[in-house]
Amino acid sequence: MDNIKRQNRKEDLKELILYTVFGNLTFVISIGSYALFNIAFGINELIANALAWVFAVLFSYVTNKKWVFKAPTPTKTAFFMQMFAFFSGRFMTLVIEEAIIFVFITLLAYPSMWVKLAAQVVVVVLNYVISKLFVFRDR
């Protein structure tokens, strides 16, 4: 029994480390593409954030499914259900992030990149919880 608990703890630690690595890469993709759209191209912060979200979420889905949570889907139906759950969860955190950006950048005129960075911290934590508890819960 102790060996099973120890193995589970090892797997959980490995999962957390991989999520941290790929989460940081997703963070960089999100911040980098947001900066490109918002600062370099002058696109509105809410639109720039939504565009950055597309790139970050596509990268995140592949890495979370394949390497972090190792969640195979034996059928097409299971694959699409898992994908729908993932994108639905990410969409919920997009709405939260857009609200943060709207309030702090659009209404209160805080610096764009600082708000985006702070919002990303909130989003990364929420995304992990959603992925762990709802999307990739069955191994």
Rank of each mutant, 00 (worst) to 15 (best):
V124N: 12
I43V: 07
D138A: 15
V28R: 09
I100P: 02
E15L: 11
F104T: 08
L18R: 10
N8C: 10
L133T: 15
F134R: 15
M81Q: 15
F37N: 02
V54A: 05
Y128Q: 10
F41P: 00
L25M: 11
Q82E: 13
A40Y: 01
L25E: 05
W67Q: 11
D12E: 14
W53E: 08
Y61F: 06
G23N: 07
R90S: 10
A56M: 09
D138K: 15
V121W: 03
A35T: 03
T77I: 11
M92R: 02
V28C: 09
I17A: 10
I29P: 07
A56H: 00
F41G: 00
W114N: 07
V54W: 05
I39Q: 05
Q82Y: 08
F136C: 06
K76S: 10
M113L: 15
Y110H: 13
T20R: 05
V124R: 12
Q120E: 08
V54H: 04
S60C: 01
N38H: 05
S60F: 01
N44L: 04
F134G: 15
S112E: 07
L58T: 05
E97Y: 07
F102E: 09
L51N: 00
V95F: 09
L16F: 04
A85Y: 07
I47G: 02
Y34G: 01
F87T: 09
V21T: 13
R9W: 14
I96V: 15
A109L: 09
W114K: 06
F41I: 00
F69S: 04
K66C: 08
K76A: 08
T63W: 01
S88V: 14
R90F: 09
A119G: 02
V122F: 12
K14I: 13
T93A: 12
I100G: 00
I29V: 15
R139S: 14
A56D: 06
V121F: 07
M92Q: 03
S60M: 00
L58F: 06
I31M: 06
F27P: 02
A56Q: 07
N44C: 01
